[in-house]
């Protein structure tokens, strides 16, 4: 019969037994107890369980737990040590988290693209300048960098026109190369992000555990 008693009913009965219901809830459960036999049985059983638990003998401490001066001194040392450890770990966790957020923002906003590009790509423009310097005839002035870039752009435009639709695919292809470079797990920014993430997590766990140790 008691199987149909819901979890909420058990809660109500248990609280009713301890006089922990509001006047309205109490009136409600009392009205139901008048008519519902299974609810009355459940209440009786709960009462008996409570009586059994309350009847557990009150044990005496098997020994005295008084503190010796050495124990008190040790407790004092732990008290001084714990807050320092906690604040150190907490500071480390906060600082590394902030740095991680900054690096992630730079990464997401694309400001760090240059930083993310592999060293080979980074070196490419300077190689181009050197090449231009070497090819320049003696006496000729080396073209400024802006002019080299303008020439490059013109060549690219021509190539684009010659290729027609394929030319349109050129720029996205270049972008995907960059994003591929960014996705490389060994890109410097990724390494920094992982490093900061690990530091933030480890310091957070250490701060939490030192706080818990301090509480107990």
């Amino acid at each position: 019969m008691k199987e149909r008693i819901s979890r909420r009913d058990w809660e109500q009965l248990s609280a009713y037994m301890d006089d922990q219901l509001s006047a309205r809830e109490q009136a409600g459960i009392e009205a139901r107890l008048q008519t519902d036999e299974s609810l009355r049985e459940a209440l009786d059983d709960l009462r008996m369980t409570r009586i059994a638990v309350k009847a557990l003998p009150h044990l005496r401490a098997p020994r005295n737990f008084t503190l010796t001066p050495e124990m008190a001194e040790m407790a004092g040392r732990r008290q001084r040590k714990t807050p320092r450890l906690f604040s150190t770990f907490r500071l480390a966790s906060v600082v590394s988290s902030l740095l991680l957020v900054m690096v992630l923002l730079v990464d997401l906003l694309g400001l760090g693209r240059v930083a993310m590009m592999p060293a080979q790509e980074m070196a490419a423009p300077s190689a181009k300048i050197l090449e231009a310097e070497e090819m320049a005839a003696p006496g000729e002035e080396v073209q400024p960098m802006v002019e080299v870039r303008a020439e490059d752009a013109a060549v690219e435009k021509e190539a684009g026109e010659a290729l027609g639709e394929e030319g349109l695919a050129y720029e996205p292809a270049a972008d995907s190369e960059i994003s591929q470079a960014a996705a490389t797990p060994f890109a410097p920014v990724r390494v920094v992000e992982i490093f900061l993430g690990v530091i933030a997590f480890a310091a957070g766990v250490a701060a939490f555990s030192s706080r818990r140790r301090g509480r107990s």
């Binding site: 979890r7 058990w10 809660e11 009965l13 248990s14 609280a15 301890d18 922990q20 059983d45 709960l46 008996m48 369980t49 409570r50 009586i51 059994a52 638990v53």
Partner: peptide, 27 residues
């Protein structure tokens, strides 16, 4: 507290049925 206590008492009640012979006669 209310919820944990009710569930704990309910489980205790079930468990104590294994020791019926030890329980007070009313039980």
């Amino acid at each position: 507290v209310k919820s944990r206590l009710a569930r704990a008492r309910h489980r205790m009640q079930d468990c104590l049925q294994k020791f019926r012979e030890l329980l007070p006669s009313a039980f």
